[in-house]
Amino acid sequence: MKTVLLVLFSTILVNNVVLSRFLGLCPFLGVSKQIKTAGGMGLAVIFVITVSSALSSAIYHLLLVPFDLTYLSTLVFILIIAALVQFIEIFLKKFSKGLYKALGVFLPLITTNCAVLGVALTNVQNGLNVWMSTLTGFGTALGFAFAIVIMASIRESLDLSKVPKAFRGMPITLLTAGLMAMAFFGFSGINIG
């Protein structure tokens, strides 16, 4: 239980995937205009990352390691992710209309979310087993959802404020992200064993 909490705390706050490891910036900057869509994207990412880190870790340990093919992991993981996203989409369309409506739009955008591939690769590099990989994936995705929802709520209020012309749009968003990164940086002082 203690490990579970520690892993979650470390992946959500201390090593936040977007703000300190720079993964998944494309959706973080692109889909963070409104809280509602940001939340949808966050949920879809939680879903996909958790499943894909479990699956890619399992395939790595069961197939790639025994046959000495670990150098193929990038190629294999991206195919797993692409196929998985496609599969989840078909599955949701068939069995859960409500969930499909909520997440469907975001699913195709997730294949190129580098957080998904990034988590799968770092898990393997750090030598985590399947269970720990799944947990790390889940925590990382929660961190992503957390950051994107905060970002969206800041941007919603930014819309109402006067921003200098040259800074409108992307520059002010990047500055906000920088300030958020500074805030999250405060957590890095916490040493987790």
Binding site: A82, V105, P108
Partner: peptide, 30 residues
């Protein structure tokens, strides 16, 4: 990005379109 996103789903045209249009709509509002 959405183009890359399609990668996983060459067949799911409707989802792609809605994904792209949702993106477009959001950007237009800004």
């Amino acid at each position: 990005c959405s183009m890359c996103g399609e990668s996983g789903c060459g067949t799911a045209d409707d989802a792609d379109k809605s994904g792209v249009s949702a993106y477009g709509a959001k950007e237009d509002k800004a």
